[in-house]
Structure formats: C-alpha cells, structure tokens
Design a protein around this nucleic acid. Structure first.
Lengths: 153, 153
DNA sequence: ACTGAAACAAGGTTAAC
DNA sequence: GTTAACCTTGTTTCAGT
C-alpha cells in the first residue's frame, strides 16, 4: 500500500479527482513532472488501489432523477437474518445510491435518487414491502450547495 | 437537453458510470454498436451535459479519510447574509464533500470526510467558529452497505 | 529517482459510404 | 449506422543527469 503519499502524489490525486479525462502530458505539466515520471506514479496509485477507479458522473436532472432524498431508518430487529435481508434489499433497489449503518440512535441513512415525490412514494412502498422497519423518515433535498466526489487529499 | 435517451444511450451511461476508463472499442462492443456510432453518442452525451464529467474515485482509507459523518444542521437565521456566510464556509472547508438544503424541519445535511473522531471534533470547532448554527448533531458512519456514484438510468 | 528522446502500440478522431 | 484510413496519445525502453 502506498501509504507514503508525498505532495506530488496528492497533486495528482487532486487533478484526477477533478478531471480524469486529462491527458498524461497535461497532468505531468500540472503537477510539475515529466510525462514518464508522472505516468509511473499514476500507475502505482492505481496498482495500490489509492485510485480505486475512474467513472463518468451523470447529470441527475438530465436523466430524470432530479430529486435527492435522505432516508433515516430505524429497526428493532438486530439479528443476522434481518441484516441479510436489508442488505439484499439495498442492493436490489437501484434508487438507493448510498446505504450507511450509523453509530448512535439512528440505525441507517439511505441516500435515494428519484424523479419526483410520487416516484419516492412508489420507492417507499417497495422498500417497506420488502423489509420490516420500525421507523422511517424522509428528508427531501431542495438544493445542493456542495456535492462532490473529490476527497480533501 | 438530450431528453431523448434511448436504450443504447442508457447502456452507454451505465457502462461509463461503472468504468470510464473503458476504451471506445470495448464500450461499443458492450452496447452493441460500431466503434464510431458509439463514439458519436458519447460525444453527444458529453456535449449535452448528460455526462457531466469523468473523475477518479480515490479510496478514502488509502488517504487517511476513513470516517464519514452526516451532520444535521439547524439555524434560526434565514436571511441572505447568513446564507452567504454559510455557503462560503461550506466551500472553504474541504472536509465537507456534500451540503444539502432540506425541506422540512431539518435545515441542512452535511456529508463530511475525516480521518478520526478527533479530526471531526477539530472540524466541528472550525465550523461553529465561522457560522452561527442553532443546532448541530453528528452521526458517524460505521459501515457502508452501498456507496455509489452511479445513478439508476 | 527523475529527465528527455525516440519508437511502438493502442485508441481516439475524421472521412467516405 | 458502418468500415476503414488517419493521427493524436498512451506506453515502453534506454541513455543520461
């Protein structure tokens, strides 16, 4: 594992988190390295898994998924069977883009992408039909002030 | 806006959301198109903004940012000055990877990335020093069951 | 360990159909 | 939408610093 990230590596990660379509030459130029040295570092970062993958970011509004919802979930079932069922449900429902087990009194937070409140309600019906939940509360996003995949390296 | 996404476009988006490093040949093959028909569609999707950008996804643990925190925020100030200050603060604090204005009684949800609970506390101190907030509650993520950038197109 | 050049291979891009 | 020709760019190698 490349636990030894120096300033150059961090610059590379910053650039690639912002724009992964940048060419090797432009990247090398931006971080102040020769094409060769830069390319080798990128390959090392990929090999070590520091760069996990490269993905296309799709505009939610352009594909009719303009509504983000945070769903706070509580359960009274904490056995393995319930968890397995919950995990499968999370995997199977494509509207769920994030599912996080929390510390504290809140059990799970779901990040959900749908096209409308009506769509959310249909999603909600499917969710509660598949897995028993003792408490659900949905919070609708009105506006994204910030929404990035870039970590502060 | 390319509101006319057919099945082929959706397949392209699905592939590129999963792996944007895939070559034109492999992508064309995967969606059942010739290299250039496929390439032309990708360019159209980029031009229309449907594909917003391509980014590298960095492994949080590999850069010492293994802790995700959801921060629920309430304010009693709803004037423009406060909002401007809040927005600037959100922009300036790199630990904040998401900031969302909510409908309902919850005002904002912040998604925060830090290395440890101690790091979170330092972040928290900096946050409340910069902007007046009437109520903050942090929820720490124990485990990600699902966490994807891919929208269900 | 990085630089620079050079050469090959691969893939992106354009043109013609 | 296709096929095929281009030609930019990624990738490897090697000599030099």
């Amino acid at each position: 594992m490349a636990d030894t990230l120096d300033e150059i590596d961090r610059r590379i990660l910053r650039q690639l988190q912002r724009d992964a379509a940048i060419g090797t030459d432009a990247l090398a130029d931006a971080v102040g390295l020769s094409r060769n040295a830069c390319w080798r570092r990128v390959k090392l970062l990929e090999g070590a898994g520091t760069i996990a993958r490269r993905v296309a970011i799709v505009d939610p509004a352009a594909v009719g998924l303009g509504l983000s919802v945070f769903v706070m979930v509580r359960t009274n079932r904490h056995d393995r069977d319930w968890l397995t069922l919950f995990e499968r449900t999370v995997r199977d429902l494509p509207e769920i883009v994030g599912a996080h087990r929390m510390a504290g009194d809140l059990d799970y937070v779901l990040r959900v992408r749908v096209g409308s409140v009506a769509d959310y309600d249909r999603f909600y019906q499917r969710l509660i039909a598949r897995v028993p939940l003792s408490d659900i509360s949905a919070s609708f996003v009105m506006d994204d002030i910030k929404d990035t995949t870039a970590l502060p390296v």
